[in-house]
Simulated scan of single mutants.
Amino acid sequence: MQNEENILAVSRYFKILSDYNRLSILYLLKEQKHSVSEIVEALHLEQSAVSHQLKILRDSRLVKAERQGKSMIYELDDDHVFTILHQIVDHVQENE
């Protein structure tokens, strides 16, 4: 049995992953690194919304950033989250 702390941590990650825009950003970054302006353009979102979502993703260590000149370039911190997402997608497709 998992302890309460672990269950709360897992619950927090599922809340983070439940947002459409955050998931869209993660899938975009799975393809390659992007700057905020590239994410804004690709997803047709406001810059402030993208920055807000990236902060949440960074704070949860799902993405990381590196400064290149005046831009911050974002990439996935690791691919572990996609193991979970692929299983969920398989489950959803199984039920269709």
Rank of each mutant, 00 (worst) to 15 (best):
I56K: 13
S35R: 03
G69L: 06
I84S: 09
R58S: 11
Q53Y: 12
K15S: 14
A49D: 14
S24C: 13
K55V: 08
V50F: 00
Y27R: 09
K70A: 13
T83R: 08
L29M: 04
E46C: 03
D90L: 14
H86D: 03
Q47K: 07
Q87P: 01
S18V: 09
Q32G: 01
S35C: 02
H52Q: 13
I16D: 08
Q47R: 04
D78N: 14
R67A: 06
G69Q: 08
Q87K: 12
L29V: 02
D79L: 12
Q47F: 04
H44P: 04
S24M: 14
A49K: 11
L85M: 09
K33V: 03
V92C: 08
T83D: 08
L45S: 06
L23Y: 13
M72K: 12
K64R: 11
S71W: 09
D78A: 03
Q68T: 14
V50R: 01
Q93D: 13
K70G: 15
S71F: 12
S37A: 09
D77E: 13
D59M: 11
V40T: 04
K33E: 08
L23W: 10
L76N: 06
A49T: 15
H52K: 15
I39Y: 03
I25T: 01
S24P: 04
N21H: 15
S35G: 01
R22S: 05
I73P: 00
E46D: 09
K33C: 05
Y74R: 00
A42W: 01
I73A: 04
R22A: 06
L54F: 06
S18L: 11
I25E: 03
Q87H: 10
Y20V: 15
I84D: 05
R22M: 05
A49V: 14
Q68N: 12
V50T: 03
S51D: 10
H86I: 01
G69D: 09
V92Q: 07
V63S: 05
Q47Y: 02
Q53T: 05
V36Y: 01
L43S: 02
L29R: 03
H80P: 04
V81E: 09
Q53G: 04
A49S: 15
I88K: 04
R61F: 15
L76A: 06
